Computed example of a mutant assay.
Amino acid sequence: MSTARPCLAQLSRICLYSNRPGITSVPARSLSTTAAVAARGPNAPKILSKADKGLRKASTNPQKNKKKGEEVKKKKKARTAYKQYDQRELEQFTLLDAMRYIRAFEVGQKPTSVKYEMAVRFKSQKNGPVVRNRLRLPHPVKTDVRICVICPPDSKYAEQAKSAGASLVGEEEIFEAVKDGKIEFDRCICQTDSLDKMNKAGLGRVLGPRGLMPSTKLGTVVKDPAAVLKDLVGGAEYRERMGVVRMAIGQLGFTPEEMQRNIKTFIDHIKKDLAHLSDRINKELSEVVLSSTNSPGFPLSGQFTKLDSSITSRDLSTS
């Protein structure tokens, strides 16, 4: 209450001066700011009120000044499905025509060094499950695969694995070679009895980044390695990436009939994978493209040859 007394006294003094006759000015300079502003000079900045400050901010921000009827542009939504092209605008080729053009690009190459590659595109969502599997083609593309089998060296599984074509069989010797960086195999299988030893050896740091670490999910930790070796020798893996599955489907020296059987097996296998997906997931085949190591891709029409085609299967059967 001590701070309010001078104010009340000052107001009472002002009222007394205003009621007296002949007094035209009121000594209320202590309540006015004009004297302080005048003392700063004519170029002094103006003191703005809160209302003036609000108007100035509104004039510098045109986004907030828009009328209610105006629509603000919305950000583009992220694409949930992979982009598809109109197949009607693309030229499609029969199998014989595609092989003919590809061989023209591969003139002078060795028939076994160049591979036919097939790319299968899906109509698929980006966040959906991917197609991934392994199959053995009727005419294997690569038969010189080196397979390592981790199992007890004195067991019956070791003898069966060697007779089935395994290049390396054992436990401790393989563990030491892998730790030293000597990885002389393309596939690795582990027998269930050796799984604990393999995990204790810590091979995942070396084999994991290379995609060679055995796991039950990939079907490379098995009870009978010899039975799996029959499928691995000449077999191939495929995996969907960005809505496309790619896999080597043949060698340059394959005949059109051999290529036809491999392509049919590959497409039928993919259709089975699609059938095993959930009913809620919509994934369909969109395009099949055949290419090679040095050639562009040729979309296939699904036909073996045209009726009026001048090229025959016999013309492409010679390498």
Rank of each mutant, 00 (worst) to 15 (best):
A226Q: 00
N282P: 05
K83M: 08
Y85P: 05
T265V: 09
G181K: 05
T318R: 15
F298E: 00
D86A: 04
L137K: 03
K283S: 03
M213F: 13
R88D: 14
P214F: 02
I23T: 13
R314C: 06
A78Y: 10
T318C: 11
K75P: 06
D273S: 13
A236F: 01
G234R: 03
A227K: 15
D268Y: 03
A4I: 15
A9H: 14
H276D: 09
L95D: 03
R261S: 04
P152I: 03
R103P: 04
S291V: 02
S30T: 10
A227C: 05
I14Y: 11
G234M: 07
V141L: 01
I267S: 00
R246F: 00
L203R: 02
E284N: 12
P140L: 07
G54R: 14
T305K: 14
Y82A: 05
T255G: 04
V141C: 02
N199Y: 12
D97F: 01
P138K: 05
A58H: 08
N294Q: 10
S313Y: 05
E258D: 06
R20F: 00
K53G: 10
P152C: 04
T312M: 08
L229V: 05
D315Y: 01
D97T: 09
V37D: 13
K50M: 12
L285E: 07
R29W: 08
E172M: 07
T220K: 02
L16E: 13
N43V: 06
S310N: 13
K83N: 09
G243V: 10
S194P: 02
G128Q: 12
S163H: 04
L274M: 12
S167A: 13
L252D: 01
T33E: 09
K115H: 11
S25V: 08
S301I: 13
K142M: 07
T312V: 07
S30P: 02
S310M: 11
A104Q: 13
L285F: 12
T24D: 13
H269S: 10
V26Q: 14
N61L: 07
C148L: 06
R205E: 08
L274H: 02
V206I: 15
E70N: 09
P296M: 03
E71W: 06
P6S: 05
K57P: 01
N294M: 14
V244P: 01
R136C: 06
G302P: 02
D273K: 11
L16D: 10
S59H: 07
R205A: 08
I183N: 02
M242Y: 07
E284I: 11
A226D: 01
E171R: 15
N127M: 10
R88H: 09
V131I: 15
E258V: 01
N19C: 10
A119C: 11
D193I: 05
L290W: 06
T143W: 03
A28G: 06
R314F: 05
G219V: 04
K162C: 03
V206W: 12
